[in-house]
Design a protein around this nucleic acid. Structure first.
Lengths: 342, 342
DNA sequence: GCACCATATGTTAGCGATAACGGCGACCGG
DNA sequence: CCGGTCGCCGTTATCGCTAACATATGGTGC
């Protein structure tokens, strides 16, 4: 019993059926809990399967039944901290539905996204959850023709293929601008990533500028980075920008991590926050909750987005397909302690 | 051409073969770049496939060829920061091998691990990379009988099923103890997670105690936490411990994140680090590189582990199976600025 | 006693691809 | 001019499982 499968020939339903003296079909029924099987045979079959160490072959099963319990989840990055959160929300929500997420990572490259999507669709998943609304034409075509529910997440500023769950990054940027101006700041700098393919960061910046423009203000300075440790980059960029443009009174960071770096640098260098300079980031990373001073940020509703997306997929794979829906969530400003109270 | 598959009937090889006037077999050959096909027919087929928007069905392909290009990767958590790093290393290394990682998460639960493993094995992957050496008997049996290469990663303190790549956490703890004692610290506290199933953390603590014992020292205080933001927990626990046992001169944290929290608390409260109290964590998170003061830590070789594990799987799925190998990597102490120089 | 139904099991025919082998010109050397 | 080889492509038989239908078997009602 220690090594029940010595022959090295992969076990099949037939092995189990022979070992338990019933037909393959009955074994299949027992293993899937489908159809009527007497308790006696059920016992026999389960016992045989366990002692043999049988593991069903879902490949064959899926081919025969034309059903696959996988949901493709396609995201730009795992090191971003944003996506693991979304992922675990999806995973939790799918837990009891029999569906299983399968993750693909694109590294913010549209071509890689197309490749990954192709690869995943070739396994005929029950649904696709994919970050962003911007895809290559080919990728978009695949999504449209796949004949399965598709949920595009994170962003609602644009045209979706099917369902969409996210926030408006444009408006998130705009609201942040309004809050900053309301607090009395006027000389404002922006620090972000140099990633043309990060459309959400771009939209936030656009919205932010728009918000400033409404008050007749322009960005006083900007600085971009690529690669490296975000915390360290935040320090460097903050130092560089404040040296270059000393009269700045606010720094808006495109993510919390570089914002935290900037905050640490300010504290280390005796700069009064939020008195002399105000700071704000974006995302609401609870990772940073233990910082000495709470950075102002805006919650991106990551958990909620994952949850809703998973619900849509689960709902639609049960009941027949219905039309796509668009769910826009509201990011909430968390003022923290790095914006002056008015 | 905007929606080539209006009939909603899934496309098959047959559709492509009819559209291009050749047999299914030839289409299959073209799409897989295998066997001899004339350039003329190759063109025809590729054109037909593209205009139809055909996506191959790997389920059928895998069943027929008995080959699957997936590698199961089973890890305890995605929010731990440790595993995304390993994952991306695996992903990068597998990039050009035609193999594709599929991730499963266990939440540090052995039962969940068993479930996830069962689920993944039922897709007949080409290999398994799984964190840790401790599994349920059933899980271990599955791994032994799967007939595919298995690599257990992160930890080498124990008996592996097949190949093993990792570090000795016991010795990592032991070395840290030695370094701390060599630096002259004597009243030492430990702060860690309350997770009986995190065997690696447990082994580190055991090794650490052993190292202290060699110098005739015992842990002066310990504190454990579960859940919550690690940074914030690090602050809280540090405060609690230093209030309870004020004469401590060193705090060893089971991970960098709570260590960083402790470090921030000490700085905020004017405690001289490393003069009055020394600090050390574990992992070598480059996430923290931008901290004002570099925390002493020990690199867990996460990237290297992922890379080597992927290489083993890739190598063995090409050439026939060979025996399992054990690769032990050496974690390196990064003294940072939170241990007194001797 | 017989039609009738529910329960429990077996039989048959695919699912959509690929492995293995076979056929058929073309080309080549002797 | 003929056997042999090579390039190209088709035919057939699975792969391991499940949907759908067929088949016992044993009550149940009238």
């Amino acid at each position: 019993m220690s090594r029940p499968n010595d022959s090295r020939r992969p076990l099949t339903l037939r092995d189990v059926s022979e070992a338990s003296g019933v037909s393959e079909m009955t074994v299949s029924r027992v293993l899937r809990n489908r159809g009527d099987v007497s308790d006696a045979t059920r016992e026999k079959v389960l016992h045989a399967a366990k002692t043999l160490g049988y593991v069903p072959n879902k490949i064959a099963g899926a081919l025969a039944s034309q059903r696959v319990n996988l949901v493709a989840v396609i995201i730009p990055s795992l090191s971003n901290l944003v996506f693991p959160k979304v992922l675990s929300a999806i995973s939790d929500e799918l837990e009891d539905t029999g569906l299983q997420p399968v993750v693909g990572v694109t590294n913010y490259s549209p071509e890689k996204e197309e490749q990954v999507l192709y690869e995943m669709l070739s396994w005929r998943p029950s649904g696709v959850i994919i970050a962003g609304l911007e895809h290559t034409p080919a990728a978009r075509a695949m999504l449209e023709n796949a004949g399965i529910p598709v949920v595009e997440i994170m962003d609602v500023d644009g045209e979706g293929v099917d369902s969409v769950v996210g926030i408006s990054h444009r408006r998130a940027g705009l609201h942040m601008a309004e809050a900053i101006i309301a607090a009395g700041y006027r000389r404002i700098g922006f620090l972000g990533t140099k990633m043309p393919e990060d459309h959400r960061a771009r939209k936030r910046l656009e919205g932010f500028k728009e918000g400033l423009a409404k008050a007749g203000i322009e960005l006083a300075d900007t600085e971009f980075y690529a690669g490296g440790s975000a915390l360290a980059k935040g320090r460097e960029m903050t130092e560089a920008m404040l040296k270059r443009t000393p009269d700045l009174d606010f720094l808006y960071y495109s993510n919390d991590m570089i914002g935290a770096g900037g905050l640490l640098w300010c504290r280390d260098n005796g700069i009064d926050v939020p008195g002399k300079v105000g700071l704000a980031g974006f995302n609401g990373l609870e990772l940073l909750e233990g910082l000495s001073v709470q950075l102002a940020t805006m919650d991106a509703c990551r958990g909620e987005i994952g949850k809703k997306a998973a619900q849509i997929i689960a709902g639609r794979s049960q009941s027949g397909m219905i039309g796509g829906e668009v769910i826009e969530l509201e990011p909430v400003l968390e003022p923290g302690e790095t914006i002056r109270k008015t």
